[in-house]
Simulated scan of single mutants.
Amino acid sequence: MLIADQGSLDTTDPRLDGKKLTIGIVQARFNADITDALATACKTELLALGVPEKHITLVQVPGALEVPVALMAMAEKLKFDALIALGCIIRGETYHFELVANESGAGVSRVALDYQLPIANAILTTENMDQAVARQTDKGRDAARVAVEMANLLDHI
């Protein structure tokens, strides 16, 4: 049985074995330079973890607010072991940042809980573009690892 602990994981850890998994990714196109980098890092890591390329489905939506709707549609198909949300929200001069960040995050969580399906939330919320660029690769990679680990964990609970 797989049990979560506080230690760091490496790609040989059985919790990160993606060979039998099917993963769905929803990528927001807004701030595409960042979200494209997130998606590339995420897909590269999923492949490194053994997820077969034919078992990775990537769909794109206009922005972060649309991510939860696409996640829900994918969850309803019942063919995914885990999902990944990718997006980038950069603070502007209005309240819109808070609205989009809060509502997209709540939507992602709601889909995960409603469908009892792990969703790695890698919708970046940053103060500026430099912060987003600094996080794009690591967060894409982290999302892949979270999705695989949580899919394996839920399979064994």
Rank of each mutant, 00 (worst) to 15 (best):
A106R: 13
C42H: 00
I34S: 02
A41N: 02
D10L: 13
L16C: 06
A122M: 04
R110N: 02
P118V: 08
K54T: 13
C42N: 15
S8L: 14
K43M: 07
V59F: 01
Q116E: 11
A4N: 11
I123W: 01
L86I: 06
G87Y: 06
Y95C: 01
L113W: 00
G50E: 09
E103K: 06
L38M: 10
D155I: 02
Q136Y: 02
G92L: 13
K79L: 07
Q116S: 08
A73Q: 15
L16M: 14
K77C: 04
Q6Y: 08
S109F: 01
S8M: 10
M129S: 07
L21E: 10
A112C: 01
I56W: 00
H55I: 00
L9G: 06
R141C: 09
G24R: 03
A85G: 07
V133E: 14
I34A: 09
A151T: 02
L153G: 00
L16N: 06
L154M: 11
T126E: 07
A64K: 02
G24A: 12
H96P: 07
L154E: 01
M1G: 09
A112W: 03
Q116I: 09
Q136F: 00
V108C: 03
I123C: 02
M129F: 15
L47Q: 10
D138C: 03
Q136H: 13
R110K: 15
Y95P: 04
R110D: 11
L46T: 09
H55Q: 12
N102E: 12
V148D: 07
I56V: 14
T35F: 02
A4I: 11
E66I: 08
N121M: 01
I3H: 11
C42S: 05
G107M: 08
N121H: 10
T11P: 05
L58G: 04
Q136I: 05
I157M: 08
E93A: 12
D138G: 10
N128Y: 04
N31Y: 08
D142S: 12
L16A: 12
N102W: 01
M74L: 15
E149M: 15
L83H: 03
L117F: 05
V148K: 03
I56K: 05
M74N: 04
Q27H: 06
G140R: 10
I25A: 00
A134C: 04
T94P: 04
G140A: 05
L113R: 09
R135S: 10
